[in-house]
Design a protein around this nucleic acid. Structure first.
Length: 157
RNA sequence: GCAGUCGGGCGGUCUGUCGCCGUUGUCUUUUGGCAAAGGAGGAAAGUCCGGGCAGCACAGAGCAUUCCACUUCCUAACAGAAAGCUGUUCGUGAGGGCAGAGUAACGCAGAAGAAAAUAACCGCCUGCAAGGGUAAGGGUGAGAAGGUGGGGUAAGAGCCCACCGGUCGUACAGUGAUGUGCGAGCCGUGUGUCUUGGAAGCUGCAAGUUCGCGUAUACCGACGUUUGAGGGUCGCUCGUCCGAGUCGGAGGGUAGAACGCUUUAGCCUGAUGGUGACAUCGGGAUUAGAUGAAUGACAGACAUUCUCUUUUAUUUAGAGAGGAUACAGAACCCGGCUUAUAGUUCGACUGCUUUU
């Protein structure tokens, strides 16, 4: 019985979070993760890894770089990657990538708002560091911390 | 009922919230919005074989190199499959594993053993002795002069006989590998080089084809460099300032985009032929096509199964709690092989046991 209550609580929490973010954004943007939010350009990726600075919140690590903003595009384009060294099988890598993508998708709005206020745009690569799987709730909380850390570091620096 | 052998099948379902991918329709017609119906596997894996497809190379013939090797058959093709054959080996059995072209010549075995092929160390026989005869017994080895038994002999030996194994000849059966019968004769093993027959051009969709922002510019043309192209300055003219290139074409092809890309030696199903792999004919089904790489995340319910507790009449049935639900993710497409796989199920068969 006790366990049930806890589970119900978490579901309510998730739902509440989703609705609030929806209401807050004036653009009426949903929690989507469309193609223009993803980082696809080869040259940008190479530059990012060469010159970007990094922030870690174990088991996640972000590499980011300020880029000139383009009209129509959102202020952050994100790349999610899991190393082949950490997980040998493609199934395991896909699972972690999906977890990370969901975590970003549900928690990106505070991050994007902060970027819009400071009128910067970024290319971000989020990497998975551990060699074993973590529960989704854990990754979600770490993702929040990570995004917050990026903003703090940028506003201070 | 239990244990097993062989060959197949399935390999979670439903609901809610939030997403991703292309397709079609529609609204805007620049991006996008809305709706509909779809969206991983038996191995998608390993990338080990074989094709298709694409580009490059290519008169013809030979040699070399690499791979393959019982027979027949299937196939687009194969180192694959099917049906058989021979030997060997494991299992009580249903069945399973392994091996399989040829041997003329030349090696190797070989640090064992007396001896590795015109064999005599010990032993046995004969003989006064020298010597001679002898492969029955001995240890070595994967292999010892076909094996077992009998006759025979001084002792022995295919020296002779019977049965068995192999070889050759022959008759029959079989498409064939082979098998069976009869006869002859008395017969060493493995391996390499080699011989015979067959196959193979190279690279892979990051192949290849088309379009191609910007930057720079080989090349061509026009107008220009004290007779000023072109540009800035308020819309135009004048004036004024800057001052050697500017404009156009064409080319290559970078970033990037499109095609290749999913209709298929394909899938499901029925009939006929075949022992079978499979073939032929008919019918049916629009539905993955991503590209730093989608097909999901979270929550709940159910299903299957295991363990524990409890009620009853301890076979069974009900209730409650807890656990488990595998291996694994398309990347041009097919046919195989190999490896991984919780659980569940069907068919044929084998052994043991119980009841009748």
């Amino acid at each position: 019985m006790c366990r049930k209550i806890v589970l119900l609580d978490t579901t309510l929490f998730c739902f509440y979070e989703a609705t609030t973010t929806k209401r807050d954004t004036k653009m009426e943007k949903k929690n989507g993760f469309a193609k223009n939010e993803r980082l696809c350009r080869k040259s940008v990726i190479e530059k990012l890894y060469a010159e970007g600075s990094s922030v870690a919140a174990f088991p996640l690590r972000a590499v980011y770089l300020k880029i000139p903003s383009e009209e129509g595009n959102p202020s952050a384009s994100v790349l999610i990657a899991v190393s082949k060294k950490r997980f040998k099988h493609a199934v395991d890598r896909n699972l972690e990538k999906r977890h990370m993508r969901e975590a970003y998708r549900l928690n990106k709005h505070p991050f994007l708002e902060a970027l819009e206020k400071s009128e910067t745009s970024m290319a971000v690569a989020i990497l998975y560091l551990d060699k074993k799987h973590h529960a989704f709730a854990h990754i979600q909380s770490k993702m929040k911390k990570l995004l917050q850390a990026i903003i703090e570091k940028e506003t201070k620096g």
